[in-house]
Design a protein around this nucleic acid. Structure first.
Ligand SMILES: O=c1ccn([C@H]2C[C@H](O)[C@@H](COP(=O)(O)OP(=O)(O)OP(=O)(O)O)O2)c(=O)[nH]1
Ligand SMILES: [Mg+2]
Length: 1099
DNA sequence: CTACAGGTTTG
DNA sequence: CAAACC
DNA sequence: GTAG
């Protein structure tokens, strides 16, 4: 901000010629201010250091308020109208545009006459927050206080505002979401960069039995006794423990110091050197601490006494206070920093890449554009550079939320949709919209992802995808993309949508609400206590892996185990724990939430969207069978006009403008989803009523398939790849046979590279990696996934029907939930494959019969047994309450740990060819079917290259005994058994002195099997025949987890059913995991200790 | 001398 | 596996 | 860069 040099030339033809700008630091930060000043000057403008006559522009941060500006500038009078107040984005936009762009979008909105501006409804004020005097002693109370927002109502309500009124009164109307009363963490803190403060506090272990903590099995004491967690003794500063209000600075008595340090900080942050990342973090903490220092620093010693200020920083501080300058700053290249900052503004360009670009000589956004070096994501980031740079108002977030909720509720009105992130934290503006979607029934969240995205896209709401996350086996999905509300003057916004299983809802909520620093603080604490916290689970008994470099490694065992787990790739976080995390109770979010504003929309869709065939009462959930035999199916976006609107006021959207989702045609994904849901309704039908059931199935078929539809399955049942086709209403036999074989859930996932194309009368979806999932609950819970290419063609009707379904099954796996492996009769269960090539015997039989093919024995296939870590919960609804036995169950072997992973090499296992209900493979299933016709029809289908040779194969034999013997090989010498905790040496210590914890009683259970057949099929999950999913990329640690728990909301819903297993196995008792039945406490015990660690930082 | 959060996608 | 991002 |  040196001298202003303005020369005539510049004034005439430069970008900012003639502009005299005052850049206000507050709200922008020192660094940004400096960059902007530099940019302004470089382009011919003049930097004003204070308001003056010649001033033309005041440039402020995005959240600046007029009245705050007035006070900051110490103005006595309002700024004259000639002075334009714009956000810094105007400057950036002009730079990018190469010309001075229109001010309008960047103006600080003026409100009523006086010249007062009300930018947002909320005031912003980090700096103006009245802070309770000295920072320190923060209230630190007993555990239960730290309910970290889990029980917070989602978007907008205040459960009991009075208890958490933020320090600022004016934000009351803005922060709808406060934490539950016991919560210490204030979600509704006003905007401020620093989310935390540090303080030290006394930890007192005051009883507070009211929480029932002592009774909890997961209380800290219990866990500590079991050696699963490590109580913290040391004091420290933990931002995750103090009220956010204490994190906000009061008055900064050392402005001169902190501003210089912040300049340095900028450099660190832009550096690609890994060291600098940590330097930046330290410096960030230190700066925050200095800002909180109650007096001006005068001596080196005083500086050093401040937390996070060590010798080197004390030196720097002292240099500043004594000389007024920091020489180190002279060595930083301002120009470079600003270019790097510019580049980093592109979503997808980080430190490293920005620096590379700079090194390659690029200096402007245009350079990058011309160079054509941006990848897909970066191109999107580039396209919306300015729009993304701008934060949005809460009101806009609410609109976006509503839009997404509408889309969700079309699929299932019971889906819960909560906006998290900065919005939920009560910030006045949000950089993006973070939406969490889940379903209280614990399973209906599955499969909604694709239809949801599709419909939002069709609507024009979602404009670009940044990241599509395939749904994982537990149904969780992540979507990062770009959206824009309809209407003029809208901007593109970043939107993140997470879909998670209900079992992870609390942790997801915690994670997704953030802030990022809060999360780090909390996780850091968890770690120090011997636990590991993520958005999926909280684990106790974490063992740190020995570090390769340093010291001698703790001997072989660790190395072994490492080798076992190292190369895992995706397949996320099978939180090694069939989460106890599932044992939580729904936050009080839902109900409360519905009471709020949004429930209007909620009901609107729940009530007013039924399709014309809907005959059940409006509130009937769509899943249950609806009388009348219609196909109520999913609520359809059309028919707005035909439906009654019981809830009067809600009708408004319907008559006039079509609601959010305006198009009237169902996206094919919705239809597919509906089909999957619909067919399940027949599972309960009694077999006796063959006729009526057939009728229903025919209706089903007609609803979803065109009369002339063709349905083809290409599969190798062991006698070579063949094509089995069904036509018209015969298609129903496929679905019928699935249901009758006991399928309790049916899902088709289009998979990663699904592509859509439109032909004249057809829309076609080609899915090279589609997966068909069948879920059985009996006799053993089993999931069968068939993977392969699926090509679907839909009609162009409003409710598209399928014209063609061609599924080429390339492979399949059968999975059994881990906990089932301990079931008494598991051997038998394991020995019975549920399917052949992913299709149950009955279906196979149908296909063959309808295609006039005789079954013959399948050759041995390699299928053995699979487990899916993630697949922990049985769909069935939770029982009313946790049986007293839960504790025992938990202790009893409920959760295998990594150490129990066992692998079998697939070739070592004889195949299991037995079809489960094999007894059904007779034609009893097929009442007199019109074979001929079907044969004819199928012939009309162009045959595959592999001709269907109707061989005279013998009937498929069952070979239970064979299976048995196979089973016996489990745990036998043929398996490569790896017992994690065994090899891991529980009590050993890693080199770094970090203690490994007895993670939990060592157990081995070689008979526990996790095996995959045909690893290549799901190669990403299975490599070398070993299951590597459990531990994935846990950097320097290995979690030998002991499930600890997830949070529980404050509600009283009982935890899910104890898993149906209680085999009194001889195994050593499992890790005493405690259960966590606390009714209000989620993280309660986590917060026990004292100390604060994280202060504000802004990486 | 090591950790500094943990998990996920992209290329 | 590194980079970016939540 | 700091803290353990
Ligand atoms: O490094 C990170 C970044 C984010 N998060 C979590 C917390 C955060 O609140 C949430 C959403 O991320 P986002 O980037 O949207 O942050 P935000 O807190 O919502 O702020 P903003 O207003 O910039 O969106 O994801 C983390 O755990 N770690
Ligand atoms: Mg956000």
């Amino acid at each position: 901000m040196a001298a202003q040099n303005l020369d005539a030339k510049a004034e005439a033809n430069s970008l900012f010629g003639g502009i005299v700008g005052l850049i206000v630091e507050q709200g922008l930060g020192k660094g940004r201010k400096r960059i902007l000043e530099k940019q302004l000057e470089e382009k011919g403008g003049t930097v004003a250091l204070s308001p003056s006559q010649t001033l033309t522009h005041v440039i402020v941060g995005p959240n600046m308020k007029y009245n705050r500006l007035v006070s900051l500038l110490k103005l006595k009078d309002p700024l004259p109208p000639e002075v334009t107040i714009v956000t810094a984005d105007w400057l950036s936009a002009s730079l990018v545009a190469g010309e001075s762009v229109d001010h309008t979008p960047y103006l600080l909105p003026l409100s009523e006459g006086t010249g007062c501006v009300s930018v947002k409804k909320v005031s912003e004020f980090s700096s103006s927050i009245p802070i309770p005097s000295p920072p320190p002693p923060v209230i630190n109370s007993p555990n239960k206080h730290y309910v970290v927002g889990v029980s917070t109502p989602p978007t907008g309500l205040k459960p009991s505002p009075q208890k958490l009124t933020p320090t600022k009164s004016n934000m009351d109307h803005v922060s709808p979401l406060k934490v539950s009363p016991v919560g210490k963490r204030r979600l509704a803190e006003p905007d401020s960069d620093s989310d935390y403060i540090e303080s030290e506090e006394e930890e007192e272990e005051e009883g507070e039995e009211s929480t029932g903590r002592s009774k909890e099995m997961l209380n800290p004491e219990a866990l500590a006794e079991q050696g699963l967690i490590r109580p913290l003794k040391k004091k420290g500063r933990w931002m995750c423990q103090v009220p956010a209000s204490t994190l906000h600075a009061q008055v900064n008595h050392n402005e001169a110091v902190t501003s210089k340090l912040e300049e340095l900080l900028l450099e660190y942050k832009n550096s690609s050197l890994p060291k600098d990342k940590w330097r930046a973090m330290s410096l960030t903490k230190a700066v925050a601490a200095v800002k909180r220092h109650p007096k001006e620093i005068t001596t080196h010693e005083e500086a050093h006494s401040i937390p996070f200020v060590g010798k080197r920083l004390a030196d720097k501080i002292y240099e500043i206070v004594s000389s007024g300058h920091l020489r180190r700053l002279d060595h930083i290249d301002k120009a470079k920093q600003s270019v790097i900052d510019l580049f980093k503004g592109i979503h997808g360009v980080g430190q490293i890449v920005a620096e590379q670009f700079y090194a390659q000589g690029y200096r402007t956004l245009d350079d990058l554009k011309e160079a054509n070096i941006l990848n897909r994501q970066q191109q999107i980031g580039f396209k919306y550079y300015h729009e993304f740079a701008e934060r949005m108002d809460r009101s806009e977030v609410e609109e976006i939320e509503r839009k997404v909720r509408e889309g969700c509720h079309l699929l299932d009105p019971n889906l819960e949709v909560v906006t998290c992130g900065s919005f939920r934290r009560g910030k006045p503006t949000c950089g993006d919209v973070d939406i969490l979607v889940t379903h209280p029934d614990g399973r209906s969240h599955k499969g909604i992802f694709q239809p949801l995205i599709r419909v939002l896209k069709n609507d024009g709401f979602l404009t670009d995808d940044l990241t599509l996350h395939e749904d994982t086996s537990d149904g969780s999905c992540k979507y990062f993309g770009v959206c824009m509300l309809p209407g003029d003057g809208r901007k593109h916004r970043r939107i993140d949508i997470y879909i998670c299983p209900y079992s992870e809802y609390p942790l997801m909520l915690l994670h997704f609400t953030g802030s990022g620093h809060f999360n780090r603080s909390l996780r850091s604490r968890a770690d120090k206590m011997g636990m590991s916290l993520s958005e999926h689970s909280l684990n106790a008994g974490v063992v740190r892996k020995a570090q390769p470099g340093a010291g001698r490694t703790p001997s072989a065992p660790a190395g072994q185990m490492e080798s076992l787990f190292t190369n895992g790739r995706r397949q996320p976080a099978p939180p090694s724990v069939p989460p106890v995390s599932s044992f939580w109770q729904p936050p009080s979010v839902g109900p409360v939430h519905q009471a709020h504003l949004h429930d209007m929309e909620y009901h609107q869709f729940a009530v007013a969207q039924p399709t014309h065939t809907m005959t059940s009462p409006p509130n009937t959930p769509m899943t249950p069978h609806v009388g009348g035999g219609g196909f109520p199916g999913l609520m359809c976006p059309i028919d707005h006009h035909t439906s009654a609107t019981p809830t009067g006021s809600i009708g408004l959207h319907q008559n006039s403008a079509p609601p959010a989702l305006s198009h009237s045609a169902w996206p094919p994904e919705y239809r597919l989803y509906a089909l999957c849901q619909e067919m399940l309704r027949y599972s309960s039908q009694s077999p006796g009523m063959a006729d009526s059931s057939k009728l229903s199935w025919e209706q089903f078929c007609m609803e979803y398939f065109h009369e002339m539809a063709i349905f083809v399955i290409e599969v190798d049942f062991g006698d070579g790849l063949k094509r089995y086709s069904l036509h018209g209403t015969l298609i129903m036999w496929y679905f019928k046979s699935l249901i009758e074989s006991g399928v309790t859930r049916y899902d088709v996932t289009l998979g990663k590279s699904a592509s859509h194309s439109y032909q004249q009368h057809m829309q076609r979806i080609e899915c090279p990696e589609a997966v068909q999932e069948l879920e059985y609950t009996l006799p053993t819970q089993t999931k069968v996934c068939s993977k392969g290419q699926l090509v679907l063609e839909f009609t162009m009707e409003d409710k598209p029907r399928i014209m063609s379904w061609v599924f080429h099954i390339q492979g399949h796996v059968e999975m059994i939930p881990r906990f089932c492996l301990q079931a008494p009769a598991i051997d038998t269960a394991l020995s019975n494959n549920v399917t052949c090539q992913g299709l149950p015997a009955s279906t196979q039989s149908i296909l063959m019969q309808l295609n006039n093919i005789t079954m013959r024995p399948a050759p041995p296939h390699k299928l053995v047994q699979i487990d899916s870590n993630l697949w922990e919960h049985p769909p069935p609804p939770p029982p009313p309450s946790i049986p007293p036995s839960q504790h025992d169950m938990l202790q009893g072997d409920r959760y295998p740990h990594e150490d129990n992973l066992v692998t079998l090499s697939s070739e070592s296992s004889p195949m299991l060819t037995h079809l489960p209900t094999s007894s059904n493979q007779d034609s009893s299933l097929l009442p007199s079917l019109p074979h001929p016709s079907c044969q004819v029809q199928s012939n009309s289908v162009p045959p595959l290259s592999h001709a269907v040779h109707s061989s005279s194969s013998p009937p498929l034999p069952l070979s239970p005994s064979l299976v048995k013997s196979n089973c016996s090989s489990y745990g036998g010498s043929s398996c490569s058994v790896v017992s994690n905790s065994n090899t891991l040496c529980p009590n050993k210590v890693t080199q770094s002195g970090k203690k490994t914890r007895p993670s939990s009683p060592v157990r081995r259970r070689s008979e526990l099997v996790m095996v995959a057949a045909e690893p290549a099929l799901f190669s990403e999950d299975m490599v070398h025949g070993q299951d590597e999913r459990r531990i994935t990329r846990i950097d320097n640690k290995r979690a030998i987890t002991t499930p600890t728990s997830s949070f529980m909301g404050t509600v009283s819903i009982p935890p899910p059913p104890p898993l149906p297993v209680s085999n009194g196995e001889s195994d050593p008792p499992p890790p005493p995991i405690s259960s966590f039945t606390n009714q209000n406490g989620s993280m309660a015990w986590l917060s026990i200790p004292s100390g604060i660690d994280w202060n504000k930082t802004t990486p």
